[in-house]
Write a protein that binds this DNA or RNA. Structure first.
Length: 812
RNA sequence: GGGCUCGUGGUCUAGCGGUUAUGAUACCACCCUUACACGGUGGGGGUCAAGAGUUCGAAUCUCUUCGGGCCCACCA
């Protein structure tokens, strides 16, 4: 047989699985279903190692379920609507979305993402995923738009969608409202500036702020109700520096007396507390920031400047006028938009929201009904839900996304929804077919906003199940069985999906959740472009193979982060080679045998046969248990240890004697156990390393009846009648003794195949004798001992103690 | 500041109340023994992050401390 070329082998079998449709979902099948809601990767670049990790771990479970006899529903999708994709396309084509018509920009996005998706799909296929590639969806497709718009109409009809003008988090770079979940912390340098405000009696008070550019929007001053230093101030007025308007001093418990001077100015809106004060004290609204991040006419001479510029200019001006009393450089955490890292502002805009703060308890209950793996991951979601303080803002002032199926009556302003039958609609192009229900007008204004990406992404279970499109399918597979995803987006994707499923169906979206960790670099750091430590899966596959990458991905417990360790890949390559070489051995010694015929023949089992069969079934048993509990790393490690240390190192060596020089009956029994054990091990390895196991399976000559693929074979079933403690203990003792004799030879500088005249095994406990009698022959042959005896009682002479009960006496 | 989580030979990892603490990888020595030198055999290397407690007994349970990670809160 030729030397193993993994890349050729992997490509060959991937092509074979495609042609043979081994991964196809069979709709008409009566088998129990197992439906997976796989994360659709964002179309904004190439596949990274984190993808390889998460998708492989999920794939291992999928392949296991398939081999357990489930009809896999395992589609794949691409998330190609939304800001991430827009930015990707803008960057690649060097254009700006807002300079084009929505339809024109959308067209460019569609064309460009198509190419990017082909690349992505190529990479994901190279991992050897068992997904059904005929079920691919794109979140910008007509069908998905339809489902997303259905979702909106349903939520609106249920009275949970509302449109309101109110202060909300806004990104001035992306020009859009953002949700709580899209925020990120960023440590930024800033100045804490002490400003002097003048009271009516000309006295001065000092207020520290990091945002002097907000002065024009200052509408009140607050002190803590218990702060004795300043209680006298409450009710008085102070003059805002530069702008010279008078604002009232009030008390509020939200003031932190420890911070700055303990006096704080309130502007609409410098931060979230400002907004709370504005609402609680019914303050005047003075908006000075435009949606594009510049200041407006209310900011006087600072009109037209960007926030940062205004901050610098006004600081200089204040200092020049002697209106400051100090300036301190600080580093503080600021909320920024995760996509562009711009500081978040609070602007008053008209946005669509989903009302859900009153449903927190229900969401918690839903989460508890899902089986979380690992269990503790649920606490992240619980933590998030209890901390929620905003309704979900679902409108975005962007272009490439699913449009709201909404118009507004030009005459009376009433909301006009699209008809379910007409979905999907684009209000910019389409018009309502009926007149306004309120005033009868035919004139409508389209809603220009698009839905938040997560509004659509949170529908992947409904998209997969074709909600409203193929109701029969939906009924069949909803709720789905498994959602695999990363722990970083539990609060985003998992949470929003649970929300949607509850709002639409009062149901959980899936029964099981598996949460994977992250791929880190060799030093345990996050992979990022700026650190230059990004490892590309494509290169890893070229260097080591897909099976090796899969082995690495399964080498950790679910939920743990995995550093990129080359040695893990080296270990994988060695294992793959060992499997391949052992298959060559099996083929060599079973050349003219037929597994099917051997199965029917009467067997004369040797003690080592009973030992290896018992061990094999013990391994099947624990592997099955581990796989059921998503503990794939344990299953893989146990299978590997059994295969290498017991099957290869011990059993194959022991069996040679019978195969080369045994009687026909002995030979046939040995051949049978050899094939049986090897074939079973291959199947245990298949979910992890499907390529090499397929290669070995298809080339097993003794197998007359092969199926199209080992990946559709049944997962081994435990035969408890073969699990036998006696033989397992026998095997253990045998290995211990052989190992001790080898150690002895090694220490004496003897060759391992040097003959020994005599060895006596002394047993403290006579009961052990029965375990050793059956393996006397095996030990003698393996260690080249002319005469091997077993004696009960205290040892005489120079002995080697193996443990408290066993000692050896060796004569050279 | 809060929640969750992790910390075992150089490196990665199993074990989760009683083992001479598992295996991998790297290292050293010997060996090309008819599947495999991408192999075999053997060896050195760990006070199981630190401290205290519970227990006859702790890597394993509890508490404290230190260090890493993720998420959240704070952000005047």
């Amino acid at each position: 047989m030729a030397q193993l070329d993994l890349h050729t082998v992997e490509k060959k079998w991937q092509k074979h699985w495609d042609l043979e449709k081994t991964n196809a979902f069979i709709r008409e099948s009566n088998k129990p279903l197992f439906c997976i809601d796989v994360p659709p990767p964002t179309v904004s670049g190439r596949m990274h190692l984190g993808h390889a990790l998460g998708y492989t771990q999920a794939d291992v479970i999928a392949r296991y379920k398939k081999m357990q006899g489930f009809n896999l529903f395992y589609p794949f999708g691409f998330d190609d609507n939304g800001l991430a994709t827009e930015r990707f396309v803008e960057k690649e084509l060097n254009i700006r979305g807002n300079t084009l018509q929505r339809s024109e920009f959308t067209k460019l996005c569609l064309e460009h993402t198509k190419k990017a998706e082909e690349e992505l799909m190529h990479d994901f296929k190279a991992l050897g995923l068992a997904a059904d590639w005929s079920l691919v969806y794109r979140t910008i497709s007509e069908e998905v738009r339809e489902i997303a718009q259905h979702s909106f109409l349903d939520i609106y009809t249920k009275g949970r969608a509302y449109r309101k003008e109110s202060p909300h988090m806004f990104c001035t770079t992306c020009n859009t409202a953002v949700a709580q979940a899209e925020l990120e912390d960023s440590e930024k340098e800033s100045y804490f500036i002490d400003l002097l405000f003048e009271l009516e009696n000309k006295e001065k008070i000092t207020i520290s702020t990091t945002r002097p550019e907000m002065l024009a929007a200052c509408i009140s001053i607050f002190v803590h109700p218990d702060d004795k230093r300043y209680l006298g101030l409450v009710g008085k007025k102070a003059k805002v520096p530069i702008f010279n308007n008078w604002v009232a001093i009030r008390k509020d418990a939200r003031v932190n007396p420890e911070k700055g001077t303990g006096i704080v100015m309130c502007c609409t809106f410098g931060d979230q507390t400002d907004m709370e004060w504005y609402k609680a004290h019914n303050l005047e609204l003075k908006i000075i920031i435009n949606e594009n991040g510049t200041l407006n006419e209310k900011a006087g001479t600072y009109k037209g400047m960007k926030i940062k510029e205004a901050r610098e200019r006004i600081t200089a001006e204040l200092e020049k006028l002697g209106l400051t009393s100090g300036k301190k450089k600080i580093v503080h955490a600021v909320n920024v938009h995760e996509r562009c890292k711009t500081d978040i502002e609070f602007l008053v805009t008209k946005q669509w929201f989903i009302k859900y703060l009153d449903l927190k308890q229900e969401f918690l209950n839903q989460a508890k009904q899902i089986n979380w793996n690992p269990k503790h991951m649920i606490s992240r979601l619980e933590n998030w839900i209890s901390g929620l303080q905003w309704d979900w803002c679902i409108s975005r002032q962007r272009f490439f996304g699913v449009p709201f199926p909404v118009w507004y009556c030009k005459k009376c302003g009433a909301i006009k929804l699209a008809d379910e039958k007409d979905l999907p609609v684009d209000p910019l192009k389409d018009t309502p077919k009926e007149v306004c229900e309120k005033c009868g007008s035919k004139e409508f204004e389209p809603e220009k906003d698009v839905l938040d990406t997560w509004f659509t992404s949170s529908l992947t279970p409904q998209i997969n199940a074709k909600w409203k499109i193929d109701e029969k399918l939906f009924e069949k597979i909803y709720p789905l069985d498994l959602r695999p995803q990363g722990h970083d987006i539990i609060t985003l994707w998992a949470f929003n999906t649970i929300v949607k499923s509850y709002l639409h169906h009062k149901s959980i979206p899936w029964k099981n959740m598996m949460v994977n960790g992250w791929a880190l670099d060799a030093k345990g750091r996050k992979m990022s472009k700026s650190l230059g430590n990004v490892v590309k899966p494509r290169e890893v596959i070229e260097k080591y193979s897909a099976d090796a990458l899969r082995y690495w991905a399964c080498s950790v417990v679910l939920g743990e982060d995995v550093p990129y360790n080359e040695k893990e890949f080296v270990a994988a390559i060695r294992l793959i080679n060992k499997i391949y070489n052992s298959s060559k051995f099996v083929n060599l010694v079973t050349e003219n045998a037929s597994y099917e015929k051997l199965t029917e023949k009467k067997k004369k089992y040797a003690s080592e046969d009973l030992w290896i069969l018992s061990r094999l079934n013990s391994v099947i048993k624990s592997s099955t248990e581990n796989m059921e509990n998503y503990n794939f790393s344990r299953a893989l490690a146990e299978t590997r240890d059994f295969f290498w240390l017991e099957f290869c190192d011990m059993y194959i060596e022991e069996v040679k004697d019978r195969i080369y020089s045994g009687t026909e009956e002995e030979k046939q029994t040995a051949q049978f156990v050899l094939i049986e054990t090897f074939l079973t091990v291959l199947k245990l390895f298949t979910p992890f390393m499907p390529h090499i196991t397929e290669e070995c399976y298809q080339s097993l000559n003794a197998l007359n009846k092969k199926s199209r693929s080992i990946t559709i074979e049944k997962y081994p079933k435990t035969d408890s009648s073969l699990i036998n403690e006696f033989y397992e203990k026998m095997g253990e003792l045998k290995m211990e003794i052989i190992s001790s004799i080898r150690k002895y030879k090694n220490s004496k500088g003897m060759a391992l195949n040097k003959e020994l005249k005599k060895v006596i095994i002394y047993l403290e406990d006579g009961k052990l004798k029965e375990y050793l009698e059956p393996v006397k022959g095996t030990i003698s042959k393996t260690c080249k001992i002319q005469s091997l005896e077993i004696e009960v009682g205290k040892a005489k002479g120079a002995i080697i103690e193996i443990n408290k009960q066993i000692a050896l006496l060796i004569e050279e």
